[in-house]
Design a protein around this nucleic acid. Structure first.
Length: 376
DNA sequence: AAACAGACCAACCGCAACTAT
DNA sequence: GATAGTTGCGGTTGGTCTGTT
């Protein structure tokens, strides 16, 4: 956190500066008078939406004194707003280089990835999205999640679900040297399929690898420099008012499920990920770390293919086969195999130690997570 | 055109961490 | 070490906008 040293200092030096910084004698007098009045009667601070005049006062204050010491704003400018309100207004609306408008597909993908990795750590997520605020990201995620959950759709895109599963598997491998010794392959696959929401009547997810590769484009997952990721056609159907998953699923990965912060995904996970068209995306079941009830999905789920024209129109690239699709098919098939293994093992030792697991419905993992979480 | 529902957004609140005294 | 003040974070709420019936 970028806490400025000495932020908690008293404001007296600044008040002195304020008195000599400009020629706003009237304002100073007013401020002083308000100070005196404050001693006599508590100032009633204003709430609600900010006016342009208030914004101007705050901007002017920051220009002269810099960010921080927000509680001094009311003292120095006479602005009838508490420090918290000033800080919020500045960080969310007034500070320079803020990016306004809806999220780009790249940003939406990144948010999903970051959320999968960090959980509801909006401020940390915002650090990866220049010009975006934690509040903005939070609002976006909450509304989007609410919408998808209401529709019974998985919260995370397939790419992110895959990454979660692989990361879990990787983590497990680190902890258990025996984990690599798969015994019953068929049983493992069945378990994986079940965990992923597949049933025996549905195609094995391994088949998906080939389908994935057919329209694959590489997305580097959680790259150290997030914006280096190529433009993601994936996120397109993720955008507002788009139908991204066509079919409902019973066990969406909730952002506030007891899974808590998901297992860290290491930056070296630079596997090429197939970015699929909506038809293919709909075939991937969510990989909930704590799988919900198993539900038979409609059989047409695997038969519906988005027409190439539709895919192309949606920016999905589904209409054109890429030259490296065979290579991608191989790597993706391997990846899917890993996925199966990952799902099949879910060691209790991997349960978050911060108590999130004991909070069904989640919502406020913040308290426990925050312990030791500061100063990053 | 009116009513309604859902989406979106800004702002508030409570809590916890951090720093200075 | 205790305390007070400040800051930041995450959850929640309420108002407004927009699309649908």
């Amino acid at each position: 956190m970028e806490r400025s040293p000495g932020a908690a200092l008293t404001s007296s030096p600044e008040e002195e500066e304020e008195k000599t910084a400009d020629g706003h004698a009237g304002e100073e007098a007013a401020a002083e008078q308000e100070q005196e009045e404050e001693a006599a009667a508590p100032v009633v601070l204003k709430k609600g939406p900010w006016t342009t005049a208030e914004d101007a006062m705050l901007v002017d204050h920051v220009r002269r004194h810099g960010e921080g010491n927000w509680n001094a704003v009311q003292r120095l400018t006479g602005l009838l707003r508490c420090g918290k309100s000033c800080r919020l207004r500045w960080t969310n609306h007034l500070r320079p280089n803020l990016k306004k408008g809806s999220f780009s597909p790249d940003e939406e993908l990144l948010i999903a990835q970051l959320h999968a990795q960090l959980g509801n750590k909006w401020a940390r997520m915002a650090a990866h999205l220049p010009g975006r605020t934690d509040n903005e990201i939070k609002n976006y995620w909450n509304t989007r999640t609410k919408r998808r959950q209401r529709a019974g759709l998985p919260v995370y895109p397939p790419e992110v679900q895959l990454q979660l599963a692989l990361a879990k598997r990787r983590r497990y491998d680190e902890l258990s040297p025996l984990s690599g010794t798969a015994v019953n392959v068929q049983g493992a696959l069945d378990a994986a399929a079940a965990a992923a929401g597949y049933t025996s009547s549905r195609p094995a997810p391994l088949d998906l690898a080939r389908q994935l590769a057919a329209t694959s484009q590489t997305v580097q997952f959680l790259s150290p420099t997030p914006f280096s990721a190529p433009s993601s056609p994936w996120a397109k159907p993720f955008a507002r008012n788009a139908q991204y998953f066509q079919l409902a699923h019973s066990s969406p990965v909730s952002p506030s499920t007891p899974t808590g912060p998901l297992h860290p995904v290491t930056p070296d996970l630079s596997l090429g990920y197939g970015v699929r068209g909506a038809d293919q995306q709909s075939r991937l079941a969510p990989l909930s770390p704590s799988p919900g009830p198993r539900v038979e999905l409609p059989s047409n789920q695997f038969g519906q293919a988005m027409p190439p024209t539709s895919a192309a129109a949606a920016g999905l690239g589904g209409g054109a086969a890429l030259p490296d699709q065979h290579q991608n098919a191989a790597s993706l098939e391997k990846m899917l195999q890993e996925l199966h293994d990952a799902i099949k093992v879910d060691p209790p030792a991997l349960a978050p130690a911060n108590g999130d697991a004991a909070r069904p419905g989640g919502g406020s993992g913040a308290v426990l997570e925050r312990h030791g979480g500061r100063g990053e």
